[in-house]
Design a protein around this nucleic acid. Sequence first.
DNA 1: TCCACGTTAGAGTATTTATTCTAAAGTAGA
DNA 2: TCTACTTTAGAATAAATACTCTAACGTGGA
Lengths: 207, 207
Amino acid sequence: MLAKVKSDMKTRDKIINTAIQLFNEQGTKAVSTNHIASAIGISPGNLYYHFRNKEDIIRAIFEQMDAYGLEQYQIILNKYWPGTIDAMEQTFIMIQEFNWRYRFFKRELTTLIMNDPLLEEGFHSTNRQMLDMIRYTIDCGIANGSIKVMNDTKKGSFADAIWLVALFWLNYLEVGGEEVNELTLRRGSDVLRTVLQPYLTGEILAK
Amino acid sequence: MLAKVKSDMKTRDKIINTAIQLFNEQGTKAVSTNHIASAIGISPGNLYYHFRNKEDIIRAIFEQMDAYGLEQYQIILNKYWPGTIDAMEQTFIMIQEFNWRYRFFKRELTTLIMNDPLLEEGFHSTNRQMLDMIRYTIDCGIANGSIKVMNDTKKGSFADAIWLVALFWLNYLEVGGEEVNELTLRRGSDVLRTVLQPYLTGEILAK
DNA sequence: TCCACGTTAGAGTATTTATTCTAAAGTAGA
DNA sequence: TCTACTTTAGAATAAATACTCTAACGTGGA
């Protein structure tokens, strides 16, 4: 569930939150700056006082995303040991919730970064960090004996496979016409497990 | 490589091919009907004689996609036995080439089908057929002994995993900032193999 | 040759969109 | 209260966009 657009919120934050909501509902193409302004009940002039243009709003949303993602990841780091199956599954669920919250972004990702070099660099950076994180997790798993030993090439493909599932499971559901709910998210975990399981060592063959 | 927009081509086909090219380059949002018309060197009126509106053009492209995809699939069916690893890998490569040819479509898929119920129904139908095809392939593989026996739930997850990789490998490359070329497409095959291999029976453990 | 019909050009329009500008309205401290 | 600064409203605009309309053009058959 998205945070409510509270009336005691600063105008700048109202704009960001309303933009996220409208973008999620209708896509960035269909939502104009005037739409956003009138949805909040402020004037276009006011909106342009806070943001130079629409692109600027999207960049601000991306910054919020980055901060939120980091925050959520810290929470998991404090709860689980890296390289454990629990940590991986929890991270997967966390990523799905994140992707759902900002779903317009993943839906239009390629187009968005095609038209904004700053956004492109920003996303690529985050993307690299995530892949590094997964590779690190795999190394931890190998070190603690829960993941089978594999060579570097295989490790790369394995990390790609995992990240691909995590990154696009929501899109997969959407383009397949399936509702996003607890059941279908759980199915995502199943798919992830189907990819992971064969590379886990014997003892941890959960359900 | 995309087919050239030949000068002896019918206007309707010129519109479709030019639209594909421009959509691929700039996204559907940035390309107006006037852009398409002037890129071909015809009048807007002429374009609207052949198509009711922009949506209509996109639908026509989708129909072309469907026909082209079916045609390509037939070619593979005539060359390989279903359920063999060769058939799967060739189909994967074929899908990547298909996705590249119509790359704007996959990039904007969710937004496109969100705004056009006809397109939505069309894509869902194709999507279902592809999943059925994969499930059938798995069954064939189990029957001919190249794929390990698994229960129906597992089979479902396995099919989802395979289709997810095939469907989004190109997007994965693009959002990761990687060029699409033979090398990166081959890496896609590696990722697919990473998912497949553990579920294959011993004898076919190709490199 | 002429007719009919499919095709095309190009001007025109209503609407939308992003953005700017100016003046007014808070607001907070001295 | 005065003052200076931030925030806001709302009118205005330039450009783009999707789409329409009418008149002309071309072509193939009678």
